[in-house]
């Protein structure tokens, strides 16, 4: 790995919902310019990891640290993390009736801009800015004037997530099961968007349990998650191995019974 300081470093992270511990000591180090994939079967703790990084209030961090640009973000509100440049692409984006998509995108974009010391965009310049980004995800502009995600198809919701990512220009983007529920065309468009947004100054963490997305975006690092921990790390070949052999061998290698104590 690089000698530069990492963008995101997770150390011994443990988290619980209520009394149920879901993350049991996660370590992860992500540098600028890298693409990581976290793989694992349902219930392994992948989604929890992404939500804990983004600061979801339902989860309690019981031990460890989440360092973003060297600073622990544990005490930051979700919006402060977002403004600082951490982005979570939701597996199930929430539908919010009555809140206009366009207005929401503008408010979010300007909050991020202010945090970076940039000027707020007025309605007109924002619309121009938005139009450029819209092309990236090939989204029909009519979706802008609907309520946020309301009545969007699965693919439309995911495009809207990538559009938000394009507007917020995060330093670290964590995409939780972005490929779930997408047809081939939508997957291609989303993958294309992610690839274009990935650059030398930012990093992407893809959370998935299929190989499918990784065929379109090649990660440098693949981590296997099970039982609330990252059990193995390898290159892209690890993803292929998982695709071929399934997940049981990982459990076996880690000396764990296969599906018994799978949480969540």
């Amino acid at each position: 790995m690089s000698d530069r300081p990492p963008l995101l470093e997770i150390r011994g992270l443990r988290a619980a919902v209520g009394d149920l511990e879901i993350l049991r000591g996660v370590d992860l180090c992500v540098h600028a310019g890298e693409i990581h994939a976290v793989m694992g079967r349902n219930g392994s703790g992948k989604s929890t990891l992404s939500k804990v990084i983004a600061g979801h209030p339902s989860y309690r961090v019981t031990a460890g640290q989440i360092l973003y640009r060297g600073q622990d973000v544990a005490d930051l509100a979700p919006e402060e993390r977002a403004r600082a440049g951490l982005f979570l692409g939701f597996q199930y984006p929430v539908e919010i009736p009555g809140v206009s998509n366009r207005e929401f995108l503008r408010v979010a974009t300007n909050a991020r801009r202010l945090a970076r010391g940039e000027e707020e965009l007025d309605t007109f310049s924002f619309d121009d800015h938005l139009e450029q980004r819209l092309a990236l995800v090939k989204m029909d502009p009519s979706f802008l004037d609907r309520s946020l995600n309301e009545g969007f198809s699965g693919g439309e919701k995911k495009r809207n997530e990538i559009l938000q990512m394009a507007l917020l220009e995060p330093a670290v983007a964590i995409l939780d099961e972005t490929d779930s529920g997408l047809d081939i065309d939508a997957l291609r468009i989303v993958a294309e968007g992610v690839r274009q947004l990935a650059g030398p100054d930012n990093a992407t963490v893809l959370i998935t349990h299929y190989q499918r997305l990784l065929e379109a975006i090649t990660p440098q690092y693949v981590h296997v998650m099970a039982h609330g921990r990252l059990l193995r790390t390898g290159g892209p070949e690890l993803a292929l191995e998982l695709e071929r052999r399934g997940y049981d061998w990982v459990d076996a290698e880690a000396g764990l019974g296969s599906r018994e104590d799978v949480a969540v």
């Binding site: 919006e79 403004r83 929401f104 917020l168």
Partner: peptide
């Protein structure tokens, strides 16, 4: 819904207001 808006950088007070307005819309 609040978390979703917050995770996009919208502060809590504004997020509440957006949702409240959305409710009325």
């Amino acid at each position: 819904e609040l978390f979703y808006l917050q995770s996009r950088g919208v502060d809590r007070v504004l997020a509440c207001r957006l949702l409240t307005r959305g409710f009325c819309r």
